[in-house]
Amino acid sequence: MNGGSAFSPNCPVPDMDSKHIELAHGSGGLLTHRLIEDIFRPAFAQSPEDLTHDGALIDVPAGQVAFTTDSYVVQPLFFPGGDIGSLAVNGAVNDLAMCGARPVCLSAGFVIEEGFSVSDLRRIAQSMQSAAQAAGVRLVTGDTKVVERGKGDGLYINTSGIGTVVAPAPVSPRQVRPGDSILVSGDLGRHGMAIMAVREGLGFEPPIVSDCAPVVAPVLRLIGEGIPLHCLRDLTRGGLATALIEIARTAGVAMLLEQSEIPVSPPVRGACEILGLDPLYVANEGRFAALVPPQAAEAALAVLRGFDPSAAIIGTVQEQGVPGSVALRTLGGSYALDLLACEQLPRIC
């Protein structure tokens, strides 16, 4: 027992200026209040009422509302091109954009592991705010929980969002028609390979930077230009191949892709070759596929190229073929892409 402790009260008072999150930060008491006042309100609140109530009141114009939710458990929390905060915001707004909606507001739920760095939390909250600003959306309500050390992985974030549908016609796999052109909004595989490079200490030079970004602006521009959007899909988990197979199955159509037209940047391609991974199945966080009628394909491509010069027309929905199939044309023929049985694992040699 050291000398000073004789004067300590029996009930320990939490360290109010701790550099690390403590269980008391999630207790609903003084430290929770401090966390909200010091970190979340300065980052998110745009009016004095924001984040002061149990929920948020939103004015929504008449019409359809899109609603989405997703949870983020990425490791590492910080990676080239983003962090868990920007990922959580972009993930939610991109899901809304894929519904043909203009994102309006988001909620954010934080599950924080005891011992997490307060300065990292502040950095992540600020990054969320920057991402929200870039996407033209407000973070209006949230929640914080702290779990005991060892019961979490640093930080998990859940975001939910609502948006107002602005596309004049439904945007969904059921609208896909034979003859439709299939476009991607940019080169593929950056996010998955950026994460893998950091997680596994693979020092690619220059480093692969995640494509993590909002895709709201290109989608709103496509709609604004009057391009009929039959279907949009962001190319997150499972990558392009998984997204298109899911669309083909729901729509009951066959697709044919041209391998030579699918944009993959040389660093991503090289990293995938080294590790034995297929970039068509690697995750993206700022890319989407658009299915549009063939006569609108060139106009859609021009819009997408205005945002990313690597956007491309990569294939078509077939008039014939086995419903639910996606084939890839290569050098000596074509083969059917399939859902992967499990996560891709780097191969031995």
């Binding site: 077939q318 086995v322 059917a336």
Partner: peptide
């Protein structure tokens, strides 16, 4: 992965 030709659409 690459040879279940029955699944291929006719191009």
């Amino acid at each position: 992965r690459y040879r279940r030709t029955a699944l291929e659409p006719t191009a």
